[in-house]
Amino acid sequence: MNDMRLVERAVDDKELKIAADGVDVFYGDTHAIKAVDVNILDKTVTAFIGPSGCGKSTFLRCLNRMNDTIDVCRVTGNILLDGEDIYHPKVDPVQLRAKVGMVFQKPNPFPKSIYDNVSYGPRIHGLARNKSELDEIVEKSLRRAALWDEVKDRLTAPGTGLSGGQQQRLCIARAVATSPEVLLMDEPCSALDPIATAQVEELIDELRERFSVVIVTHSMQQAARVSQKTAFFHLGELVEFGDTSQIFTNPKDPRTESYITGRIG
């Protein structure tokens, strides 16, 4: 196995999807994110790496305003999605989250059937006019998450009864079902075994054709395998951001080099 094989993928001049500019995040008195600028491109996988507690998950949660649910959290700076400020008072965070979907660290299927898990988003957003359209969306989403063949005969079975890897793919199908433009993944493989991890990574690579994917990961091999762009966070600062191949072969910042060679972290 050549884990550290770097995938040389052409990063064309893709459209800018999310532009973060001078973002600061405070948890009460703690300054968790310090003046971070990142540009996330469409149809690209961007990986956030860095040691635990460096703020990469916090920053990810800023991108769909999940931090709003935490009382003490305060975000300043600009985050533009397709050129529009997502923290503008006119923006409805609920609508935003339909456009910027999220997959969490631990698989969290709802205690409902597989079908109801996937159709949850389309239902609350009214994306299907009738039952057959909804069926179509569910099938399409499950196919995209590479889960359809495994569950097509038991769509009414509870989602919590699937294996860990299947649950995580179900959560991805659930997020894909609302047709988001950006998919945020917060360490999606950290609770999975190597085989399930490989399946999810393959899936992420396929999802890139339609969405912009942002993934937080602790595994540098994973970042190298699935991403085209990599951002390295350290102590709340964005240390380095660039093409994945460049970050892993020719890091500009000594801290990045120390981290990817295992000296800090």
């Binding site: 979907g101 969290n108 609302t178």
Partner: peptide, 8 residues
């Protein structure tokens, strides 16, 4: 989180 993350 899962539900909010889907825009509910």
């Amino acid at each position: 989180d899962g539900s909010y993350g889907l825009g509910a």
